[in-house]
């Protein structure tokens, strides 16, 4: 497998302080490898966005990182912990190394500035020696890359359609040629055809430019189609992680199975749509043991008392995957 570019180690994020803190991300261990698309799925409220904001240190109060490391491996030079960077170091790291396309990217553009201004101020901040002329040239090039004609440079956000704004954000994310692009539900506001078109384009760009992607959505069908590996989140934890088609064919965690059965099969034999009974866990009062046990059809004796750790399962194909479930006790914990 390719070398890692981003390693999230034991990351914990809370909202609020003290007893009333909500633990939105718990002991998350996740590795993004060079050139891959890592999908992150889970019900609404499972902590996907919090994880993305946490690892880029963009959490708005009351969000706080309470522990962990985010080890970044630059293309050249030695690795470092993003969470330990100074303010200046963090500013330089942002966008140049890791860019984000946000959930609700419709409002990601400032309504009072031209598209060109918003594309070029990134360049001004990160490459201060660049001439105004080459900044404009680069901005035009990025628009072309995402299929927007250069004469839209001077447009204001409200003059563009939702899909175009989304493309502008993707072009903006790639303008400094980062190694990592995080996409948090980048297309939920768009219609299905547009979603696939934009994601398809992104994957093509990834093959050409060679960046890695963390792709967050609760739409598993999109994930299975566009990612190499998939991690499933439940109640702030990663509960299963495996290559995309392994998850699709043979998920081990009962929650992953539930998620998969709640959307129609893309191709192949039709499956019965069952969904998951019960409602997502209350983060403030998480059940003891495996937090999925009140909803789990397979829950048994250890589930209510002890937390299953994420690790390599006891299955024949166990090497490339990990799961946190007492049905498949970890032989080798991750992290």
């Amino acid at each position: 497998m390719a070398e890692p570019v981003l390693e999230i180690r034991n990351l914990n994020v809370d909202y609020g302080l003290g007893d009333r803190a909500v633990h939105a991300v718990r002991d998350v261990n996740l590795t993004l490898h060079r050139g891959e698309v890592l999908g992150l799925a889970g019900e609404s409220g499972s902590g996907k966005s919090t994880l993305a904001y946490g690892l880029t240190r963009l959490l708005a109060p009351p969000g706080v990182i309470t522990g962990g490391q985010v080890i970044y491996h630059p293309a050249q030079g030695s690795s470092y912990d993003v969470l330990a960077l100074s303010d200046n170091g963090l500013r330089e790291w942002r966008w140049a190394e890791t860019a984000i396309v946000f959930q609700g990217a419709m409002n990601s553009l400032n309504p009072v500035h031209k598209i060109s201004t918003q594309l070029m101020d990134v360049l001004k901040a990160h490459e201060p020696n660049m001439s105004a002329h080459s900044r404009a040239a680069r901005a035009r090039e990025m628009l072309k890359l995402v299929g927007i004609s250069a004469d839209r440079m001077d447009a204001y956000p409200h003059q563009l359609s939702g899909g175009m704004r989304q493309r502008v954000m993707i072009g903006m994310a790639l303008i400094l040629q980062p190694q990592v692009v995080i996409m948090d539900e980048p297309t939920t506001a768009l219609d299905v055809v547009m979603q696939r078109q934009i994601l398809g384009q992104l994957i093509e760009l990834r093959e050409r430019l060679g960046f890695s992607v963390i792709f967050i959505t609760h739409d598993l069908s999109l994930l299975v189609e566009f990612s190499n590996r998939i991690a499933i989140m439940y109640g702030g934890r990663i509960v299963e992680e495996a290559p995309a088609n392994t998850i699709y064919r043979d998920a081990l965690h009962p929650y992953s199975k539930g998620l998969l059965s709640s959307f129609p099969a893309l191709r192949g034999p039709r499956r019965e749509l069952t969904g998951i009974p019960g409602s997502p866990p209350d983060l403030a009062g998480m059940p003891a043991g495996c937090s999925f046990h009140p909803r789990c059809p397979k829950a048994f004796e250890p589930c209510g008392s002890a937390i299953p750790v994420l690790g390599r399962p006891d299955t024949p194909d166990g090497a490339g995957r990990s799961v946190a479930c007492w049905l498949h006790p970890a032989e080798q914990p991750v992290g």
Partner: peptide
């Protein structure tokens, strides 16, 4: 948030 994420001062 995007402006912060872009690493602007």
């Amino acid at each position: 948030t995007v402006a912060h994420a872009k690493g602007l001062s």
